[in-house]
Design a protein around this nucleic acid. Structure first.
Length: 222
DNA sequence: CCAGACGTTGTT
DNA sequence: GTCTGG
DNA sequence: CCAGACGTTGTT
DNA sequence: GTCTGG
């Protein structure tokens, strides 16, 4: 599901938007991928963490496991051995983003069409997530839920997205409160458009990736 | 009880 | 560390 | 998430 | 088909 996203707002803009105290340095990203280092917010601080989650009992160098944990189902996150500690101890984070990508699979033609999804209401928002720490390595996962009707035909799951003004609630809530915030999260204001297949390649990372394209129906030779 | 997995999405 | 399956 | 690799022995 | 790397 949510396996690629963008974050191109400048650090100082994110600082203002989310009211964080410090200001790490990072550049615009149009194709953030799992296992990469990205900005995350925990309470009033912004830091850099690795996308993918390492459970507390896992080895720090277990990249394979980390890469498998890029998403966590919000419906079961409180029950899963991998996430239970972070959930119960309130290790929640926000992952600032400007949009994310979704690949729609066509069952008959077996083609994959990437779409870029944004919010018509907030040009910068945040995914809700959980973090974990091993020595100096901080990792994070993005919480998901059933897709809103606005994008359900693209994909039946979507990330939990919060607006900047929901930050305070997300971090001051107790576990029950956090669950309620997740419940109330929605995607009513989501909009999307098809983009180039170039986004598939992790090495591609430019503004051109989010430009709308016209879908060309590919010829089947046989 | 111990051993072994520990995740998601999507597809069947 | 904690849950599931046997 | 997608793209790309997917193996060993032995030699340098 | 399935795993790894990014």
């Amino acid at each position: 599901m949510c396996g690629r996203y963008t974050l191109y707002d400048a650090p100082h803009k994110l600082k203002d938007l989310f009211g964080t105290g410090n200001l790490p340095n990072f550049g615009a990203r149009y194709n953030a991928a799992p296992l990469q280092e990205m900005p995350v917010i925990v309470k009033n601080k912004m830091g850099i963490a690795r996308w993918g989650f390492l459970p507390p009992w896992a080895h720090e160098d277990d990249h394979g496991l980390c890469a498998k944990m890029i998403n966590a189902r919000s419906e079961t996150v409180a029950d899963k051995p991998s996430f239970i500690e972070s959930w119960q101890k309130g290790r929640r984070c926000l992952i600032p983003a400007n949009g994310y990508y979704e690949w729609q699979k066509d069952e008959t033609s077996k083609q994959k069409q990437p779409y870029y999804i944004t919010s018509s209401r907030h040009d910068c928002f945040a995914f809700a997530g959980l973090w974990s720490k091993h020595n100096d390595l901080v990792t994070f996962t993005i919480l998901t839920k059933e897709a809103d009707a606005a994008i359900a035909h693209l994909h039946h799951r979507m990330p939990i997205m919060l607006s900047p003004d929901e930050k305070e609630d997300w971090f001051t809530a107790n576990t029950e409160g956090a669950a309620a915030i997740i419940q109330s999260a929605h995607g009513k204001d989501l909009v999307f458009h098809p983009v180039s297949d170039d986004v598939g390649k992790v090495a591609n990372d430019s503004e051109a990736l989010i430009a709308p394209v016209t879908i060309m129906q590919q010829q089947t030779m046989f």
